[in-house]
Design a protein around this nucleic acid. Sequence first.
RNA 1: GGUGAUGUAGCCAAGUGGUAAGGCAAGGGUCUGCAAAACCCUCAUGCACCAGUUCAAAUCUGGUCAUCACCUCCA
Length: 465
Amino acid sequence: MQIFNTLSRKKEELRPIKEGEYRIYVCGPTVYNYIHIGNARPVIVFDTLRRYLEYKGNKVLYVSNITDIDDKLIKRAAEENTDMQSLARKYEAEYFKDTEGLGVKKATVHPRATEHIDEILSIVKDIIDKGYGYVARNGDVYFRAKKFKEYGKLSHLVLEDLVSGNRSLRSEMDADLKEDSADFAVWKSAKAGEPYWESPYGNGRPGWHIECSAMARKHLGKTIDIHAGGEDLIFPHHENEIAQSECANGCTFANYWMHNAFLNVDNQKMSKSKNNFFTVRELAEHYGYEPIRYFMLSGHYRSPINYTAELIESCKSALERLYTCRDNLDFAIENASGADTSLLDDAKKAKEKFCAAMDDDLNTVEALAAIFDYVREINTKAQSSSKETLVAAAKMFDELTGVLNIVSSRKKDEIPAEVTDLVAQRAEAKKAKNWALADEIRNKITELGYTVEDTTQGAKVSKNK
RNA sequence: GGUGAUGUAGCCAAGUGGUAAGGCAAGGGUCUGCAAAACCCUCAUGCACCAGUUCAAAUCUGGUCAUCACCUCCA
């Protein structure tokens, strides 16, 4: 499998440290609010990567952190008149509600920053011991960015350019605490009224970047296979993680870095001030979760995608085609009488095309095309195939759609006896060519919330769409 | 100023040298008592624009235009 590695800016053959096993760390949410649709993109994209690796028979250790200590949390807790921990737990629960709806598998571990203060302090100590960190007079601990010669290797930015950049006001503010304006905080001294933990440097709390370095080391080891997140995290977050981890551990932090492009709204970055901000929750209430997942996979993860309501609607229609195909398959299996086995070849071809696409840097768009090609074959041959063939074809359909996890919300409808009776009555009426009565019964069935469709294999009943 | 991305049909979107996948929408047809679903056909002599390289370019090179992002706590 080829993966685009941000480090080399090239597609590379993905080779894990240990054959058949992948250690993946994906930067998780800061739980201070409901997640927005932009947050959902990396969650869905890398969940799909994980599912594909597992589908290919690999073991995946997947870690995604919960940031539950942060400036935004402190601020928001004050606004909501609550404490930081209750706020964090509340939105963490909402986060899991949304991700579950989006068909995202739970990570092997979802570590919380506040439960890893010991590990964080331990890596801070390593950094200081090795000469890469220093304690400022107020108790802040900073990382000497320039001392790490490879600083900038991920973002391909040069420190001098950064320093001369046009947003240096903030670093100038701390200029009297830092040795150099490029240095960044790994530990922050406590401010009045804010949560803090005791440390050798005085009371304080972890900086943003250090938690990921610490939790990755604890749960996945010093060198991991893949580290992933949104492209905005490349700098400074991931750059700083590399500096911290590689200096503290003395070895490569992550072999592959994967970053998804942004999701825009009206071709602009989503932001509250532009009033183009959508949470996953509000969209899910409108359209359901599954179209959102499909939408995220309908474009390549490294290309920006633009959200509009019309697109979600068209994703919903595309999903309908998949649901209908799967329903037809079940119906055909129950009523199978044909002998054609050529669908088995189509299933094999579909899998080959699907895997070739996924192997090429997670090309979910081509993978979807493979599924839709297969759907056409199924629809064409469903009524002429043998039962065994249809069962195998359905299994392949479930396999491929299962990797993308896009047909999970389809349920087999329970048909009440009342409706079944009406269907039987309608069949009688049809037999007698009493079309008026047949249509009247069909209307009744519709009113009860069900749809009846006539096929060459008899009447097919489902819930109204 | 530095770095990077993008521009393909009405909409979305794959395709990195061999003559434009797939989905949505639209139109026509087949099937059906009528429907629904499904299937078939139609829908870019052309891939922002201009040059160039090549037997061959959406794809490579140079330039132009447009849009977007990152450059110290935004996925």
